[in-house]
């Protein structure tokens, strides 16, 4: 598993891919942060007023990146789906399986590496957003005092962990789609189509479904349970169960399947 983990970094760290992915998440973070600070004095998507006072609270520092947590999730899902399904479609998987025949360990190592990569890109997005928030705060009359207080640091830590967990949830959906569909384009298209329009429609038509739909739960976790009256702990538990089941399913399919690619 350690060998599989180490080996997976070789394609993940190739410059084009790394720069492309980092570029995408940094752009998302910039967008979210700039828009969040510029919306001070206006109303947000849900119709709630955005005020300088709210942004000055200890949890205000991560508002910018949390606003685009869905985009981070999409990037995480795409990266994982592209990597895993790419192994199938390039035919590199069969070389890897000859080198590491223990399938469950191979996939587990790959998933761990991909999870670490997701944490890395979320960290990059968070760092950019935090830096920009400090730059933009004075221009919109937002106080940064609470951000760097003890409470602020705790909020930063938990907020970051939540963002990571949410993105990893998206990544699990990408992993399952990749293992089932075996082609990057199909895997990303199907996973995104499910995650965005399908779930959103269901949640809009039947609101209680929000507390049971996996992507809605990931979203809940990523934003620290801000949007819904459902307790955060419940969302976290359900989200972890969903992600666990998806990974387990992927492992089971991967172990049994004929490698004809």
């Amino acid at each position: 598993m350690i060998a599989a983990f180490r080996a997976e970094w070789v394609p993940l760290l190739r410059p084009r891919f790394l720069l492309g992915t980092l570029g995408a998440v940094v752009a998302c973070a910039l967008l979210g942060t700039v828009l969040t600070f510029f919306s001070v004095g206006h109303r947000d998507f849900d119709g709630d007023p955005v005020t300088a006072a709210a942004l000055s609270r200890p949890d205000g520092l991560l508002q910018g990146v949390q606003a685009v947590s869905i985009l981070l999730g999409v990037v995480a899902l795409s990266v994982v789906a592209a990597s895993l399904a790419g192994d199938h479609s390039h035919g590199t998987l069969r070389n890897q399986l000859v080198a590491r025949p223990h399938r469950a360990r191979l996939l587990a190592g790959k998933l761990l590496a991909l999870a670490a990569f997701v944490v890395l890109i979320v960290a990059a997005a968070t760092a950019v957003s935090v830096g920009l928030s400090f730059l933009l705060a004075p221009t919109r009359g937002v106080s940064t005092a609470a951000w760097s207080s003890g409470a602020g640091l705790v909020e930063l830590g938990t907020g970051f962990v939540n963002l990571c967990l949410g993105s990893l949830g998206y990544a699990a959906i990408g992993a399952l789609a990749a293992i089932l569909l075996r082609g990057p384009a199909a895997a990303i298209a199907v996973a995104l189509a499910y995650a965005l329009p399908v779930e959103m429609l269901i949640a809009r038509i039947y609101r209680p479904a929000r507390s049971w739909l996996p992507v809605q739960l990931m979203q809940e976790i990523a934003t620290g349970g801000a949007a819904d009256p459902m307790p955060y702990a419940d969302a976290l538990l359900r989200g972890v169960v969903y992600a666990g089941v998806m990974v387990l399913l992927a492992l089971m399919v991967f172990r049994r399947r004929d490698m004809t690619a």
Binding site: A7, V10, P11, H90, T92, R94, N95, A99, R100
Partner: peptide, 26 residues
């Protein structure tokens, strides 16, 4: 050691890095 149905490697990696990845795996 095996090669089945033609050489299949990661198109975006150099030959050396591709081998490197397999060497790590092994």
């Amino acid at each position: 050691g095996a090669m089945i149905e033609g050489p299949t490697f990661h198109p975006g990696l150099s030959g050396r890095r591709n081998l490197d990845q397999l060497a790590i795996l092994r």
